[in-house]
């Protein structure tokens, strides 16, 4: 694997549109559930071990070559919120567009062709990782890190939280993220041998409910 390719894919400035999303943090800030660095960390831990773990497992499975159509259906079944399904597909489409320009690969062309409205973002991410010559662990790390760095960066803007404090939160999450990446790779391998039902399905009720409310706000800083 190429470590430099991993940095390109994981870079927050990679033009895949992720910066416009708060990962549910904007809704949680408005509801008064995130007020400082401590509650941000709790939010990120909850997200990391629920929807974050599911996304990372899907990404790892896609990087291992599990059929993207099966993974996309598994992602739908694990995302009850229609607002979150829509966001996942938009982000997936943008990621595939950026990845095709960066690492041209027939599997990316095929994915774009099969899902004109976009495949779920983790499925696109895993396929992009394959195209970049990266492995399931790289895909899982990218997915997990993006899943917590998005909310952390968003809360800096939403609450005026000190960026040093937000970055310290991410550093404190590192050991949990390492374990979650390992778990995601193992889940991806189980999906390869036993089918996508073997993927985790952990949910976070307030992320789902909050996403539905947020999608209907007339004015918001982030798209989700």
């Amino acid at each position: 694997m190429s470590r430099a390719a991993l940095l390109v894919l994981a870079d927050g400035r990679f033009p895949a549109g992720g910066h416009a999303h708060s990962g549910g943090a904007e809704a949680a800030v408005k509801a008064g559930r995130i007020t400082d660095a401590v509650s941000l960390e709790q939010f990120c831990r909850g997200r990391l071990h629920t929807s974050g773990a599911v996304a990372a497992s899907l990404a790892a499975a896609a990087a291992l070559g599990v059929d993207p159509r099966e993974l996309d259906r598994a992602a739908d079944a694990r995302t009850p919120s229609p607002a979150l399904r829509l966001v996942a597909r938009r982000l997936g489409r943008q990621l595939v567009r950026a990845a095709r320009a960066t690492w041209p690969h027939p599997e990316l062309d095929e994915l774009a062709h099969q899902f004109p409205k976009g495949a779920h973002q983790p499925v696109a991410l895993g396929t992009a990782a394959r195209a970049a010559g990266l492995g399931p662990q790289d895909a899982a790390y990218c997915s997990l890190y993006e899943g917590v760095s998005g909310p952390a960066t968003a809360v800096v803007r939403l609450l005026g939280l000190d960026p040093f404090d937000a970055t310290a939160v991410l550093a404190r999450l590192a050991p949990a993220l390492d374990r979650a990446a390992q778990d995601a790779v193992e889940a991806g391998q189980r999906a390869l041998s036993d089918g996508p039902e073997a993927l985790p399905a952990r949910s976070a009720p307030l992320l789902e409910i909050g996403a539905e409310a947020h999608a209907k706000w007339p004015v918001r800083l982030f798209a989700s």
């Binding site: 949680a28 831990r45 909850g46 629920t50 952990r202 307030l206």
Partner: peptide, 11 residues
């Protein structure tokens, strides 16, 4: 799992 009762889970 950690965070089950946090702002993303059940709060």
């Amino acid at each position: 799992v950690e965070g089950w009762d946090g702002p993303a889970g059940l709060a």
